[in-house]
Nucleic acid binder design. Structure first.
Lengths: 260, 260
DNA sequence: CGCAAGATTGAAGTACGTCAATTCCAGTGG
DNA sequence: CCACTGGAATTGACGTACTTCAATCTTGCG
């Protein structure tokens, strides 16, 4: 649960009691095999899923047999807080590589929400950020040429992974094939390959054995035209050590009843 | 308020009392001049806005001076149920042509939500659908060629406008310039123009003086590869006459506390 | 070791964009 | 009623960032 709490603390302070309550709501933790689905288009979600370890993507199949990826999830990301309200999933959630996912019982979560408070706010914020990311992707795919498009994605992942402590000084582990990157960016694998090489020659990034190194993040951000504000992170270059909760607690306005 | 209620009834039954309560929560109704903004990037929202009449778009400015449109709002669409939770808007909301927007007081809405019930569910569903639309746009822009891309948008609008009773038998009013369409679809105005002409020659649609006619919607849907399920409409070809509420009431599971 | 999936590279095609001119049209003022 | 105006629509010629196809070369893995 560590990653989730770390992530939620971007949006509001989460007390130790809240964190414990979250941990208690976990019904099960399962290992999803590489390439497997967490939930599929048309399914009715019975649980709320949380990605603990590994990577996952939201996707839809295309008429021509390909697939379009509309979101990446990294550890700490919630898959479907909302599912259950709508009749059926309009997209699938698949795993890249092997992944560990927690299954929350909906009932336990509901009682958590009834308590209200900052945890509720934090969870709700995280869905708003998901939406903001979607909008940014739309702009990214619609308007930026391949190089900047890829660079932009890599910048976003750097911040998102940083927020859950999954980056090192000059990069992070990126276990996505070029095929997956292509499906995410609306490009062909061939072109991803060439673009990656171009970025490499410009010394902006280098990807080797699934390890991405970014010699100079600021330069990459500049090149991509990346503006991190859409991620709504409090701590834009998150320090890894979990900040003392008391330092933040009380600063946030209470969510109260205005959760919508 | 008629359009809002009509729209919400796609997702759950809304009683007359609910409808009245919604109407009472309106603090003000203003006319936004053509091209004006309802709320701007960086703003902190003080109200919740609802589009009563006219069209609006979510957009961001680009580095090169252009703009990217990430959503269209039609009458009945809520602009920012969520705003207020996050610190600042990460995008702007502008009006196309002249538009009439209602200003809800946040407090009045909050008390509405406290009552819970189907109205709350319906409102929440509508934000989930917004997200689903965003995902579909991502796929549309990332993967479909210009013709199908435009056609897909026109199909979506046909259903969305139909749900609030703004379509006629064979089309609807589409008061968007080709420039706006271009910004929405990630194409240039020039190419929109040619694409529109191509669709016209194929007798799929024709756009004249802002009036769009669709000789055969099924054929257009087929051409676009449009699958309406992401809109999560109960009544896929909405009949204009407001359905007797008693016919639906009680069928929906109560939202209860599981609003998230 | 051998197989399958992914990565890489080259050559050729195409769906777009860009630039630039012209025409159309609603609104405005005379 | 008509000329004037500025934004939008339209059209053509041309350039290019991407795709497609196809071959080869890695890499991980049973």
């Amino acid at each position: 649960m560590d990653v989730l709490v770390k992530k939620l603390r971007q949006f509001a302070s989460v007390s130790e009691a809240d964190a414990q309550a979250l941990a208690d709501a976990v019904q099960d933790v399962r290992l999803v095999p590489a390439g497997g689905d967490i939930i599929r288009e048309g399914d009715k979600a019975a649980h709320v899923h949380l990605l603990l370890d590994g990577w996952a993507v939201r996707y839809k199949h295309l008429a021509d047999g390909g697939r379009s990826i509309m979101a990446v999830l990294v550890p700490g990301d919630i898959c479907d807080v909302h599912a259950g309200l709508l009749r059926a999933m309009d997209h699938s959630l698949g795993v890249v590589g092997e992944a560990e996912v927690a299954y929350f019982s909906r009932g336990a979560l509901d009682t958590l929400f009834e308590r209200g408070g900052l945890l509720t706010k934090a969870l709700f914020c995280s869905t708003l950020v998901d939406e903001a990311i979607l909008r940014e992707w739309l702009l990214n795919i619609g308007r930026r040429p391949a190089g900047e498009r890829l660079a932009h994605l890599l910048c976003e992942l750097s911040l998102r992974l940083g927020a859950v402590g999954l980056t090192v000084e000059d990069g992070y582990r990126l276990p996505l094939s070029q095929i997956v990157l292509a499906d995410m960016l609306g490009l062909t694998p061939v072109h991803i390959n060439r673009t990656l090489k171009t970025l490499g020659k410009a010394n902006l990034v280098s990807l080797d054995k699934k390890e991405l190194t970014i010699p100079n993040l600021e330069r990459l951000i500049d090149f991509a035209g990346f503006d991190p504000s859409y991620l709504h992170q409090l701590n834009n270059l998150a320090d890894d050590r979990s900040p003392s909760p008391s330092k933040r607690r009380g600063q946030e306005p209470s969510l109260g009843s205005s959760w919508l």
